[in-house]
Design a protein around this nucleic acid. Structure first.
Lengths: 198, 198
DNA sequence: CGCGATATTGAGGTCGTTCAACATGCGTGG
DNA sequence: CCACGCATGTTGAACGACCTCAATATCGCG
């Protein structure tokens, strides 16, 4: 898929889940008044489309941030999945999704913009590490506008925070990537969002 | 259970989900640095403990806000629940849980405190209506501190916002309950978090 | 190479936080 | 039953941070 293509749209029948293979995606929800909120960014190995599996229709839309590929996984035969013993993994998906949402929520509840940015970066670092990739080289394929929206701040604030962190020597900030220099300091700034990853 | 009792604790083996029967509960997560975040409030008919089903251990703790009862639901019984026809409703509850989490996240992303409070109130109203209760009489069994924490603001700000809304005639604010007077205006203030309820 | 989109930087205003004092409610015990 | 005391909630003032508006800089792409 190319940048801007929809993997699925809110309202579509939710017959499948998707696993990112390459590239990156974002999920967005549009409010009744037309306002958009970026609910998440997804990288290779991560699962998308879980939110729709309960109601039968996707609640959010998934958009490719760059040239990307994803693996479609039909889940229409839910009861039969139980019979063949895939029930636990289904629960795991729901739980993972719920947990990611909870972490994001905790992060958003912090008043300081610095803490939210630091929290997102450390969380992303942990996710990448969990996928077997380098935890210090963070890809940022999303626009500043999208990331700021996701973190509940304006793009100007985000730009300033990143500049501040770079000037402090905690990170190296490229436009489409960030390298963590002092991850410990970032975690401290974020307030240790989550104890550990089991 | 009495006020302050734990339904389950973070770290416990997550063998069950719980459905609130009466009263109300809150869920909290403690960060590595000891900071507490209130992740949700749960009323009769709503499901709790989903977050733990991924890792096998609860990620949050559930605390009774008042004298409450809950129905323990071992997930090993899920196939049998399906046989007796309770599978779909449980699945619906899972979906509702995930959706609630997403809505809360969207709500927190708004910068204005008024919008976040209005968003929570309208969301709670819809949840109560969904459970067959009055959508205009909102119970607030939680403390101001907890609600402010949940909404990502200080208790002073919350107090001011509620006072402002009451003075504007949009709500009637008691200490442990709120009556919606002008729900439409509240929804507008919240920015229509979610299009509709299918 | 030039243009449009995206990102950074700057100045001023508003809103939420902080610190503080006051008011109210609730439970306990006399 | 009332009074007391503590916890909880409300109100006030000043500071600081984020947002808004605006200009400049840089990147990407044809």
């Amino acid at each position: 898929m190319q940048r801007g293509d929809f993997l699925y749209r809110a309202g579509d029948r939710a017959d499948d889940c998707f696993v990112v293979r390459s590239g990156a995606y974002k999920t967005v929800v549009v409010s009744g008044d037309g306002q958009v909120h970026v609910t998440g960014f997804y990288f290779p190995g991560e699962i998308m489309g879980v939110s729709g599996q309960a109601s039968g229709r996707y609640r959010d839309s998934a958009v490719a941030l760059q040239t990307s590929t994803a693996c479609r996984t039909p889940l229409t035969e839910l009861p039969r999945l139980w019979e063949i013993g895939s029930g636990p993994s289904l629960l795991r998906m729901f739980g993972d999704s719920e947990r990611l949402s909870t972490e994001g929520r905790t992060n958003l509840s912090r008043p300081a913009a610095d803490a939210r940015v630091a929290g997102y970066l450390t969380g992303l670092s942990r996710r990448l590490k969990h996928q077997g990739r380098s935890p210090d080289h963070l890809p940022l394929p999303m626009s500043r506008t999208d990331l700021a929206n996701h973190l509940g701040m304006t793009l100007e604030s985000l730009s300033r925070v990143l500049g501040r962190l770079a000037r402090s020597g905690l990170i190296r900030s490229d436009r489409h990537a960030i390298t963590l220099v002092d991850g410990k300091a970032l975690e401290a700034m974020a307030g240790h969002l989550d104890p550990e990853v089991p």
